[in-house]
Design a protein around this nucleic acid. Structure first.
Lengths: 366, 366
DNA sequence: CTGTTAGCGCATTCAA
DNA sequence: TTGAATGCGCTAACAG
């Protein structure tokens, strides 16, 4: 005998109908915000529902209505921190609207992607989907969505055409960040890029170029190295940049994890941040505060973005509003990892392998 | 007109029955692993189900069977990293067993807790629940679970009596960790504790005492300060310990986040880790690798623990096996943040506010 | 504006 | 060992 979870007897729609002295259809209308109910009736019904603590049975609704009241969060493999933040916002919005959230991690490769999407539709039948980059621009995913006519909202998609969801002006944000470095006197500023499948990779790079251009600094391709938005990208990219004959005095990493990798490389080489090297990241994830020195970065309201995308999606599903592409604002967060350009940029940095023991780590907050 | 998500026509149980030449009841029996089906019939049905890609309708099942096929992950407010890891394991186990996962964040306070639990039952009707500390030992939560006769599994509960789920021997793990410090010559070892509502707080403290006792080091209450398993605990606790007249040469923080806070305090005071101070954490979360110096810590197989707890829960729900309390093994992870005790522990550390500029940060990996 | 009637797809008594 | 009939609680045409 398996253990059943619940006493079957709970208040049903007909109990509410009886208490209100109307038919169950009227109750149904009120619940689903359908028209053709007198305002007085509607209010009375709502009151009784509240008093009886009536909770519609999800399964009955799903079965009869061909609607699941489920939103799926479809993601690939972004940073766990990022994902967790987004998830929090999405969850909050779902709960507020009495929708359920199902998590749909998608495997790598086209075949796996297709299989996972199919599995999602067969098993969970979401009424709508929230997409996280880089899946926002994955052809296989989009095709499945369109084939099944499932509405979806995107968070920071590359292409915002015909999309609903939320975005941020990464380009302008980076522009401001780099301008800050320029203001500190830096002119050789390195950049470790993110994964090219993300729109963010390109916007951030564009913002970097914008800022250099405006400052009259020539763009030096040597100072721009590839990355994947992960810690290891910071290790690899940081080494490569610092090994340059004429290394940068500041490095803009495409996100905080990458910046953490750069901080480590600097430490290993005996470079003090920000005295010998300025570093900045992007996103303002928890790690930005947790590492030492704390990162100068751009705050991205990640949870809020999840919430907004979900609300736009649900609004669209309801059909009341068309669903928009909302833009959220960023904020520059100045912390400890950026500072004035070193007064005398000697050739010492060139022989990076041979550490300069003369350098002292200067304590902050004396 | 609202947008509907799915074409209604999919293969149903009666299609399978027709194809197999049996009644739907037989199909149902096979699907639910009930007895009283001839082996040959069972196999044929399974084959046809696979060929037709038949997926039972969750809503119909839930409606008719009074079963939701939902597992709820009930959590309070632990570290996001920890939560994310656990969630990954739980999700994997749920998917493997064709269960759905619903996330159930629980608010603070008794009233909120009760309300959130009630909401969970009314709305999602989980067939089972996975509990994360410190909710594993929350009276309100447990009471709701028992009242509703919902089976649950616990991850690292304080009390393992009458519980199914998974645990780890934190006490032995810490014992090993402290023994490592003792082996490096440390005798004044500080400890920043975790939140007392967690079993882990007590086990880790006990392991710390065990190790000291075995090494013949007297337990000094002054060296043990409270904390909450968060970064800020490391800041506060670290300052307090380093401000001691006779400060410790090593600090064991109850988890990695806390250790990161200690690392920062050390940095601010110009202390080099591990040259002037050894620091270690617990959990081996990503931050342990991402900060510099990387943390010596204890690896806890968090995702695996989520997976195991869920599998035990589902086994219990099915009623086949009773459900056990599984113990997983830990592993010591030696990284960069621990080293030999400083040769001459001078009084310099006492005047912690007045930083010692003479100290040089020694580069690793020369 | 409101009520009546018929399923949605499956699990489940009770017979056979 | 199997099958036919009944209903889970709700939504959705279609009348009134």
């Amino acid at each position: 005998m398996t253990s059943r979870s619940r006493a079957a007897t709970r208040v049903r729609i007909e109990d509410v109908a009886a208490a209100a002295g109307v038919s169950i259809k009227t109750i149904s209308r009120v619940l689903n915000r359908e028209p053709n109910v007198r305002e007085a009736t509607r209010r009375r019904v709502e009151e009784i529902c509240a008093r009886l603590e009536y909770q519609p049975n999800r399964f009955a609704r799903g079965l009869a209505g061909q609607r699941s009241y489920v939103v799926a969060l479809v993601y690939n493999n972004p940073s766990l921190n990022y994902l967790m933040e987004v998830q929090g916002g999405v969850l909050e919005a779902c709960h507020a609207q009495h929708y359920n959230l199902v998590l749909a991690p998608i495997g790598d490769g086209k075949a796996r992607t297709a299989a996972d999407m199919r599995g999602l539709f067969e098993h969970s039948r979401p009424d709508g989907v929230v997409l996280i980059p880089p899946l926002t621009d994955n052809a296989t995913v989009i095709a499945h969505l369109r084939d099944n006519a499932v509405p979806f909202a995107c968070i920071a998609p590359r292409s915002t055409r015909e999309r609903i969801g939320v975005r941020m002006d990464d380009r302008a944000a980076v522009h401001g960040l780099i301008a800050h470095l320029v203001g500190l006197g830096h002119r050789r500023i390195g950049h470790i890029m993110g994964a090219a499948s993300h729109g963010a990779c390109h916007w951030r790079h564009a913002g970097y170029r914008d800022a250099l251009g405006q400052a009259g600094i020539e763009y030096d391709p040597e100072l721009v190295v590839p990355g994947e938005f992960v810690f290891e990208s910071g290790i690899r990219g940081g080494k490569r940049l610092l090994d340059l004959p004429s290394p940068p005095t500041a490095i803009f990493a495409a996100n905080d994890d990458t910046a953490a990798g750069v901080i480590r490389v600097a430490g290993e080489r005996g470079l003090s941040v920000p005295r010998d090297l300025s570093v900045c990241g992007f996103d303002d994830t928890p790690i930005a505060r947790h590492i030492y020195p704390a990162l100068t970065t751009v705050r991205q309201p990640t949870a809020e973005m999840g919430r907004i995308a979900t609300l736009e999606l649900l609004q669209h599903i309801r059909g009341a509003e068309p669903g928009r592409m909302v833009e959220v604002t960023h904020a520059l967060v100045l912390r400890e990892s950026t500072g004035p350009v070193p007064p005398a940029r000697s050739t010492q940095a060139r022989i990076a392998g041979a550490v300069s023991r003369s350098r002292t780590r200067e304590p902050r907050r004396p």
